[in-house]
Design a protein around this nucleic acid. Sequence first.
DNA 1: CGTCGATATATCGGCTCGATATGTCGGCAA
DNA 2: TTGCCGACATATCGAGCCGATATATCGACG
Lengths: 207, 207
Amino acid sequence: MLELAILGLLKEQELHGYELKKRLTDALGAFSSVSFGSLYPALGRLEAAGAVRAVVQPAEGGPAGPAGPVVPMTGSIAGEAAAFRARRSTTRPSRTRKVYAITPRGEALFEELLEADSASADDDRAFNLKLAFCRHLPPERRLGLFERRRALLVERLAKARTNVRSRRERMDLYTRSLADHGAETTEADISWLDRLIAIERERGEAS
Amino acid sequence: MLELAILGLLKEQELHGYELKKRLTDALGAFSSVSFGSLYPALGRLEAAGAVRAVVQPAEGGPAGPAGPVVPMTGSIAGEAAAFRARRSTTRPSRTRKVYAITPRGEALFEELLEADSASADDDRAFNLKLAFCRHLPPERRLGLFERRRALLVERLAKARTNVRSRRERMDLYTRSLADHGAETTEADISWLDRLIAIERERGEAS
DNA sequence: CGTCGATATATCGGCTCGATATGTCGGCAA
DNA sequence: TTGCCGACATATCGAGCCGATATATCGACG
C-alpha cells in the first residue's frame, strides 16, 4: 500500500527517502503521516524486488554520469570543492543521499497495485492513494475504480443503516450521534464519487 | 487502543472473545473491522496486566458463585445436564468458551485510557471509540475531550488549506478533488462536534 | 450421513507506527 | 572560534494491528 505511493512519486521524478517522505505526508493531506519506520523498509523491499534502483547522486542539471558508488574526487580538488560550494548554495545535497529511480519492473508493479481491489478495512486510505495517481490509468479503468468504490460505500451505508435501525433504542446519545454522523459522511462520500463519475463520463463523450 | 474498547464493553457485562468481536465490529460501524489477530492478544495482555480475568461459564441468570477455575459439577449430574440443555436451546454456549470479566484494575485502566490524549494519526479511530464510551466520563471531562478534538480538526483543516493554496495549480483534477473533499469532510466533522458541544453545554446549564 | 455455515479460540507473517540512534551541515550567539 | 541548535538524511527496534489460516464443535439442510 505504501509501495503504490512510492512508485507513483518516483514515476514522475527520482527522489531520495527524506524528500519522498515530505511529499507523501502533504500529498495525502494532514492525515496518514507515513513514518520512516515504514518508508525505508518499503524502499528496501522495492529495491530487493527490482522495482526501484538506487542511483548515487541526483541528476539535477544533467545525467551525472556513471559515477562509481562512492569515492568521487577524480578531477582537481579545488574544482570539486567549488562545484560543491556552488551546489550547496542553491539546494543542499548533504553528502549521504540515496536517490531512487523507478524501473520497468516497478512500472508494471505500479499498474498492478493500482488495479488491485483491496476490499478490506484500510480501503479508505488505499482508495485515496489510488485516486491521487489514477491519472496514469486509462479512462475506462478509472471509471471502474470509481464504481467499485461507490458500490462498496453503498453496501457499507446499507449495513450501517439496518444496524442502527435494529439497535437505536439501546444506544446512548453519543453512540447514536456517532452512527448518524458516520452515515451522513458516507452519503457525502457517495455523492462526491457520483460527481467524479459524472465528470469522467462527460470526458468520455467529449473525446 | 483496542484495550479501551474491550474494557468498555466488559464494564457493562461479562463476555467471551467471539461475542466481544461481534459487538466491536458493529458498535464502530462498518469501518474498522477488529480482527481476532488483534483481539485475542489484547485479551491476553489485559489478563496478564490483571485488568480482566477469565471466568469459566457465563453468569447468565445469577452471580454464578465463587467457582474455582475449572471443575464445576458440584450438584446432581442430571440437573447440570438439564440446565445445560435448556441453556443451549435459547443461546448456544458451545462447550469451550472463555468468558472475561473486568476487574477494579481494569476499571482504573479504562478511565486512564479514556482521558489519554493521543495526538497521533490513528486519532480518528481512537476518538470514535472514546465517544462510544464517553458516557462514563464526568460532564466536564467529556466537554474537554470534545474541545481537544475540535482544536485538532481546526488545526488540521488550516494546514490542509494552506497546503492546497500553495500547490493548487500543480495538482491534477483528481488530487484537487480529493483535497477539496477532504476539507469539506473535516468542516462537517467540526460542525458536528459543535453540535455535540452545544448539547453538552445545555445539559450543564439544565442540571 | 455428510457437508455446510456459524460458533469459538488461537497463531503466524507482514506491515506500519512512534521512538530512537547516528551523523552531516549551516547558522547563530557567546 | 567554538560550541550548540535545528534541519537534513538514513536506519533500526519493539509493539500493535490486520488478514489469513488452523482447529474444533455444533445445528441445519438436503
